[in-house]
Every structure is written in C-alpha cells, then in structure tokens.
Design a protein around this nucleic acid. Structure first.
Lengths: 196, 196
DNA sequence: CGTCGATACGGACCCAGGGTCCGGATTCTA
DNA sequence: TAGAATCCGGACCCTGGGTCCGTATCGACG
C-alpha cells in the first residue's frame, strides 16, 4: 500500500530527485550494498522519511529504478521488430531474448546485483522475473520437440543471473562480446537437439 | 586467520556444540535469515565471543556447516564408483554430477540458501563453487565437439542454484524426482548437440 | 599436586543501517 | 486566504553482526 503516487508538486519533484540521485549513486559506487538509504536521501537533498514514504522500502526503490531502466526493452520485446519482437520465429527469438537480458545486466550491473541478492527475498518472487520467465516459456513452447519448457526457461535465465554475469565480467575478465557469443551458443545448443 | 583449530578440550567441545546447534536451527527455522548468530550461540549454550572466535564470522560458520554436509559427496565424486566417480565416461558423469548437486541442495535447502545469498559476497567467490566448476569444466572438456566449456559449466551449475531450487520446490510444488529428471534432460540436451 | 603462562569463555558493548514518528512547513481547495 | 490534507525531514528506534576484556579454564611442568 505505500505505492500509490501523489499528485502534489513537491512530492513528484522529490520522487524524481530520488530516482536520479539513486541511479547516479548505484552507477558510481563499487558495490551496491555500500550505497545506503541515508546516502540516497542525502544525495537527493531529501529526508529519509520522504524517501521511505515514496518507495516503501529499499526493495521498492530498487524496483522502481529497475523498471525505469527496463522500459525500453520491454517495449522492444512486446511490440518491436524481430528478432526481439513477437513476430520473430521462436528459434531466433529465444537467443535474442536472452541476449537482451544479458546486455541489460551488463549495462546495469550494480543495479541488477542489488535487486537480485536483495538480502532475503529471492529474485524469483519478483514480478519482473515472472514476466521474463513466462514469456520465454511461451516462446519455447512454440518450438516443436522441446519438453519441460517451464524448467528450461528457468535454466536459461539462470545463465544470465546478475552475480554470474558480474563474476564473469569482473574476475573472469571476459569481454562483453565473447560472453554474448557464449550465451547464444549455449542457447542454440539447448534448442538444437532434435531426436538424439 | 581466525581459522586455525585449537587443541584445547573445551574449545573443540564448544565448536562441536555450535555446529550441531546451528545445524538443527537451520533445519528447523523457515528462513535462514531469521536464525541469528545470537540464536546459534544461545542454542549451543555458548557466548557470542566463543562463536565468533571459532568461526570468524557468519560466513565462516556457514562454510563449516556446508563443508561437513558436503564431505560424503566430495568423497563419492573424487574416489567413488561411476557414474559419479572419476572413472565414469564424461557423458554419463556430467548429468550425475549435476544430479548430485541438485540432490544436495534439495536436502539442505536452508543451508544452501543461507550460504548462496549470504548478503554481499556472491557464491562465485566461494571456494566450493570454484571446485565444482573446475571439475565440471574438466569433464566437459573431455567431450568432443563441445566448446566454451568454462561458460557451459557455469550455466549448467546456475540451473542448480539454491534459490531456484527452493522456488521450484516451494512455490512451484515440483516434486523431487520430476526436478531431477528435468535437470538431467536439460543437461543431456546441452551435451547432445553434434554438428547442428 | 600446586603453580603459572597461555588460551578460551561469555556477555556487555559498539556500530551501521533499515525503517518509523511527529511537529512543523507546504500545497491544494473553496 | 483560511483550513484541511498532505508532505517534509531528521531525530529516533531496533535488530543483528561483530568486538573487547576481565575472568575462568586448561595443561605443561616442577
């Protein structure tokens, strides 16, 4: 219930300020967990009360940031051209979807990290995960000969988890393009198997 | 450096007591994060100081518990009979390894969960992950026609992440055997692809 | 068996950080 | 422009991980 927006001018201005400041902070700081709520409030020039009233709790703020960043991709997936859009043939669309997720996580490492570990609630009860999963699953179901599409969707998405991506990009020093190629290759292999 | 064991009788006794108590607590409580260090100390009949001296920090305690539980599997993998042991043919061993990991996580849900989210440090910098990964990778490399074995090993292991397993077993109500079958099927598909 | 140095014990204590509260300021409505 | 509704913000609370240090215990040695 702490989610409904206010129409009061100062409220929306502050909400905006917080979003902007938080975005900047997460981008600048090394690890997402050393950007504290007090930091965000201070950076936004706002009191903690305001911050929490606007977003409920830390997870709420993260979700809001995440949703904003995700918006363009959501658009591209829902109404865009192939291979991301709904008119693409399933075998092309699956790798494209995974690639989009991967790129998103590469571009928003800290944020995705912060949201996925989140201290307590797993990413699997987040609604945005649910969306990706059911979409991917639906696409997989259109590919003949594939079984266990629900599980397969989970397993494929698991390969794009933020901390794995972070690990590979960070300690592993794997460049972006290589990682994309590997994921695409992996997805292809999963889809490829005809009768073995 | 807070890791070297003591030989003093009371010290080992207390260490044992803590391990036992913690094990019981994690098994009993719903979520791993509402078993606090103070709880563990109290349940073990020991002061917090003792607890922290013996294990360094929370992660240290988790690691110790984990290692104890993992020991039999490690044995089976390193010196046991096929299909888990080193003499098994790679195409059989990969699914077997994954199955072993999955079963372990099913049998130790809370513990694995606690260790993998761990608040801060990702599971990917844990040494036990490193071990599974390099083993799996080595086995994959023995399979002709497979490329990107490093990444593939990561991706396969990602399908056994504790929170995913928890999600599937919990909200998804997927029975153990079905999950094992799905994972095996998935692994098989990944390995199956000849020239596409 | 008594003494003594080394080691461990344990709970009071510290601190960070998420989240709450409420008196006062601001904004909308009439 | 009065009054009500809403919002502001920072002082405050609380939980939980981690530390400290005076005291109790251990075990080696005489």
């Amino acid at each position: 219930m702490p989610e409904r927006q206010s129409s009061r001018k100062d409220a929306v201005r502050n909400r905006e300020a917080v979003l902007t400041a938080a975005d900047a902070l997460f981008a600048r700081r090394e690890s997402p967990e050393d950007v504290t709520m007090a930091d965000v409030a201070a950076a936004a020039g706002v009191g903690k009360g305001t911050l929490f009233r606007a977003f409920g709790d830390r997870a709420g703020l993260l979700r809001a940031l995440y949703a904003a960043r995700l918006e363009p991709i959501r658009q591209a997936v829902e109404t865009g051209p192939p291979p991301l859009g709904p008119t693409a043939p399933p075998r092309d669309r699956v790798p494209a979807l995974l690639d989009a997720v991967l790129c998103f996580k590469l571009d928003n490492r800290r944020l995705a990290l912060a949201l996925e570990e989140g201290g307590g609630n797993s990413p699997y009860q987040a609604e945005h995960y649910e969306r990706w999963h059911s979409l991917l699953r639906a696409v997989l179901e259109q590919i003949p000969g594939l079984t266990d599409c629900d599980f397969t969707a989970h397993a494929l998405l698991a390969a794009t988890r933020a901390d794995l991506v972070e690990h590979l990009a960070g300690e592993g020093h794997i460049p972006r393009e290589r990682m994309r190629a590997q994921l695409a290759n992996f997805a292809t292999r999963v889809l490829a198997s005809g009768p073995l």
